[in-house]
Design a protein around this nucleic acid. Sequence first.
RNA 1: CGGGAUGUAGCGCAGUUGGUAGCGCACUACGUUCGGGACGUAGGGGUCGGCUGUUCGAGUCAGCUCAUCCCGACCA
Length: 492
Amino acid sequence: MAKEITPRSEDYSKWYNDIVVKADLAEQSAVRGCMVIKPYGYAIWEKMQHTLDAMFKETGVQNAYFPLFIPKSFFSREAEHVAGFAKECAVVTHHRLMNSPDGKGVVVDPDARLEEELIVRPTSETIIWSVYKNWIKSWRDLPVLCNQWCNVVRWEMRTRPFLRTSEFLWQEGHTAHATAEEAEARTRQMVQVYAKFARETMSLPVIVGHKSPNERFAGALDTLTIEAMMQDGKALQAGTSHFLGQNFGKSFDVQFADKDGSLQYAWATSWGVSTRLMGALIMAHSDDDGLILPPSLAPIQVVMVPIYKTDDERNAVLEKFEEISKALTAKGISVKIDDRDTLRPGFKFAEWEVKGVPVRLAMGARDLANDSMEVFRRDTLEKETMPIEKVAGHIPALLEDIQKNIYRKALDFREAHVEKCDSWEEFQEKIQTGKFLLCHWDGTVETEQAIKDATKATIRCIPVDSYVCEEKGKDIYSGKPSERRVVFAIAY
RNA sequence: CGGGAUGUAGCGCAGUUGGUAGCGCACUACGUUCGGGACGUAGGGGUCGGCUGUUCGAGUCAGCUCAUCCCGACCA
């Protein structure tokens, strides 16, 4: 495959789109800004869903489903929330079409205008809290811990596959609690679920932290985030968990009788991750040969490519593959024997590499004679020849090693591109080269905005686990006193 | 919604001063190949984004329009 584009080149966007297309993950749909997720891409998303879903359930969360359409009036109840989403809503105004009077196609039937317009959900806080009002009467009804897997629509001006599409798939959790402490604890708990998922399942190192007020979710008192670094050094917000206070409880009049008989408003959290995680996966791990998938998300973990000239050779190799396939399947490993007769081995090698399959086994007449097999790992591109009987036993440890190695590689990359910075001159230059800069910030929206206007860089988070730096200093821009360092970066 | 660009085969593109539509990849058939994206031969595939105009004649010129992409503002 041609190696014209490298991950840190200026044409990162082209490189990314190239991988999306060649790895057969997604394609552009006829609808502007929307995306068709193809079977291979969707299989990865399904694996993400299953893993996350199990993690949610371990924390007591249950799945539910709420309507796609939200009456417009619901949005006017929470002022900050509506301000955040008003500019990007798809609105349903009619419910019927009719044949065009001029005989050409169909038109909207003017008589079918809805009395109240419906908004296609950009997020479901409003409709869910309108339902919670009926569910929550007593402290005994709390907490309510619901999650839904669904699609949402945000009519963005500019779109990019997986990272920002007009419609996207996601999961949104919405919880109601009796106390602020409990809701805040849930907010922290869920961001840690996301961090664990990113690190262990996606092999993606993330920084957990608070968003600055400027970057907070519309209507939230606090937003926790996981921030990841892509291979061009830019930041990607990969998941968020919001503490919503009593904003929605009050807006939707969700009151309950507390233990002491007093009426209280419920406390809320919401948290979500989307198909944007697919974008993160692509941009964090791929190389010039295509996608590199962590084994825990790979739809196919081991692919077997037979090499042969005659039917006899083919049958002999496939027989060995079947044996190994059975042994691996018994261990819960997903295996594919690529027995397509019309393609040459070299083509198959390249194709499975683009798709990011972690391990490839190849076997031909030469190996057959030696009772050996070639084992190839996608992450390092290393080949190893080993005796056939040892292969099945070797694979589980190899997959585990690949999983860890991909994480290690991404972590090393991030470590090499994070640094402290105390000079505004240095900041302006370094931030453009793809770095996370740990800098002092005076805590004001004005300073953050001024830095953004000057450099496009934003505060990605105020870290709570890695890179925590509680030391006094002077703001990088304003020179005013600062209590701690925060993470600045240019983001997707 | 501002600034820039592009619409020609499934994809990527060429098409000169206006004169009967081309290339590469992909696709179909046959043969030779098969240990890192094979090769040969023969085929199939088009409302040149749309409309209007200029002209004997428009992919090419003009006007309008639609769509897409990139850069801004917005955003997970």
